[in-house]
Design a protein around this nucleic acid. Structure first.
Length: 165
DNA sequence: GCCAACGTTGGC
DNA sequence: GCCAACGTTGGC
């Protein structure tokens, strides 16, 4: 899941109440569908910083709720207000995201691009600017390794945090 | 349903 | 700040 650190950074997530935040404001149907149709509580999230000095993976989070309607679509003073959305049939959905752990090393976009094991990642495909993208297990484990973590460390922390959801 | 015009994303 | 590559809008 991508975010622009200027508007909401990984550090902001870490400091948020219960280290959890609703992933509001997604207004792209494909990205919405990933949240609405494919995400489940406990799914691992690669947190990515875009539109910044060093774009790349910065840490891990996890999906902390089932999908539910994005409340900002009904909020007239929100910049995400959608006058065409119907309360009985909301157009936009989101999930809550909870902080898991920092990457010891940022996994930069440029290092992802030069890693041949990650040639298949959607992120490195031409013109790919979707803010939410699926990542497969092999890609995920490669990113973890590049970040300076091993899977045992990650899973230990994962089990702790998952219990707290 | 087509497509031009416009807005947004996001790396560089 | 630039601009390529998308996605969306809305007239027809």
């Amino acid at each position: 899941m991508k975010s622009e650190p200027e508007s909401f950074s990984f550090d902001d997530l870490k400091k948020a109440q219960n280290q959890t935040t609703p992933w509001d404001g997604v207004r792209n149907y494909q990205a919405r569908n990933f949240m609405k149709n494919d995400m489940q509580i406990g799914d691992m999230v690669l947190f990515y910083h875009s539109n910044c000095k060093v774009p790349g993976g910065i840490g891990l989070a996890l999906v902390a709720s089932k999908p539910y309607p994005d409340f900002t679509q009904f909020d007239k003073i929100s910049k995400y207000f959608d006058p065409k959305s119907d309360k009985d049939n909301p157009r936009w959905y989101l999930v809550d995201v909870k902080y898991l752990m920092d990457f010891p090393e940022i996994v930069s976009l440029s290092s992802i691009k030069t890693n041949e094991n990650l040639n298949g990642m959607l992120l490195v495909k031409k013109g790919m600017r979707l803010s939410i993208q699926p990542v497969n297990r092999e890609e995920f484990e490669e990113i973890i390794r590049m970040a300076g973590l091993n899977l045992n460390q990650v899973m230990k922390r994962y089990d702790e945090v998952k219990k707290s959801i």
